[in-house]
């Protein structure tokens, strides 16, 4: 039983990181109907920012986290302005391929600058509490709590503020909303900033939880987060969170009961089954095509 709780805790930790990244995919998709495949690599850049700030500037945890988020958010906005904005009227796949290109660029640029995997120094003293046979580390609690706080803030921003209302309006109808005086470009930039900033935060937390980082770490995690977003129903913010926790749970549980090399296999097979049963994701609404 304690073993199960232990694994549940690990699942929550991994799931909250997936969820944070999936949020970036889903927000951008909701507003632009475009899949930002560079998002996983922005997550990687977040982890590298964390490394730079922690090693060379010797900052402590909070400024490292905030500066990394800010840096990744700025990068996200710049990428949107330079690479995606010219393609808004172009066919959807062109934007997707551009995003893949941007992702490859980020990976290989980082690789050219730092060919070897880097080790993130422990920014926080990690204490472990033992409750019965259950051991809880403060790092785990921090990752889970921080992710939940960030998600709650995001949910508040999207559901309750004027900017959030504008985001939802743009994803609802792109032709009418600009006529109502909504500054579409600013809102899109803001969406990118928030989405990629969350990805950067996930990068920092991932770096703390699994300290060895390399330029290709964003690929697998990024694609998995994309799967989370789709499983939850792409474009749906709450769906992305649920999808993240589901994938985290599935991966950890598979690794707990089977040889860990089967993890990807079982996780992806389950996702296929889920998608066949619910083709529009858990919280996604089927969009009947009008003829």
């Amino acid at each position: 039983m304690a073993y199960l709780f232990q694994q549940a805790l690990n699942a929550l930790q991994l799931g909250s990181i997936y969820a944070l990244i999936a949020l970036g995919y889903t927000m951008v998709y909701g507003i632009l109907t475009m899949i930002n495949f560079a998002h996983g690599d922005l997550f990687m850049v977040g982890a590298f920012f964390c490394f730079l700030l922690a090693v060379y500037l010797k900052l402590s945890f909070v400024p490292t986290l905030l500066l990394s988020m800010l840096g990744v958010a700025c990068l996200g906005v710049i990428i949107e302005r330079l690479a995606y904005k010219p393609l808004r009227a172009a066919p959807r796949v062109s934007a997707i391929i551009t995003a893949l290109g941007v992702g490859l660029f980020l990976e290989n640029f980082t690789l050219a600058l730092s060919p070897y995997p880097k080790h993130i120094p422990p920014l926080l003293t990690n204490t472990t509490w033992a409750i019965g046979s259950l051991s809880i580390s403060s790092l785990q609690v921090l990752v889970i709590a921080l992710s939940l706080i960030l998600m709650l803030i995001l949910d508040f921003v999207v559901q309750r503020t004027k900017a959030g209302m504008a985001m939802r309006a743009i994803s609802w109808d792109k032709t009418i909303v600009p006529l109502m005086g909504v500054p579409v470009n600013k809102i899109i930039s803001l969406t990118f900033a928030i989405g990629t900033g969350l990805g950067g935060a996930a990068g920092v937390m991932y770096g703390l939880a699994y300290p060895v980082i390399d330029p290709y770490m964003g690929i697998m995690v990024g694609w998995k987060a994309f799967i989370c977003a789709v499983v939850g129903g792409i474009g749906n913010v709450r769906g992305a969170m649920i999808g993240g926790f589901i994938l985290g749970a599935v991966e950890i549980l598979v690794a707990a009961f089977f040889p860990s090399t089967y993890r990807d296999f079982v996780a992806f097979t389950l996702l296929l089954v889920l998608l066949i049963l619910r083709p529009y994701g858990i919280l996604g609404k089927p969009q009947p095509q009008k003829v």
């Binding site: 690479a83 393609l87 062109s94 290989n108 050219a112």
Partner: peptide, 21 residues
């Protein structure tokens, strides 16, 4: 060397911007 994989995606992005199809 490694930098070719930096230039290649850049060229792809530029191509997509100026010739999206």
């Amino acid at each position: 060397g490694v930098w070719r994989m930096v230039f290649m995606p850049l060229m792809l992005v530029l191509l997509m911007i100026y010739r999206p199809r």
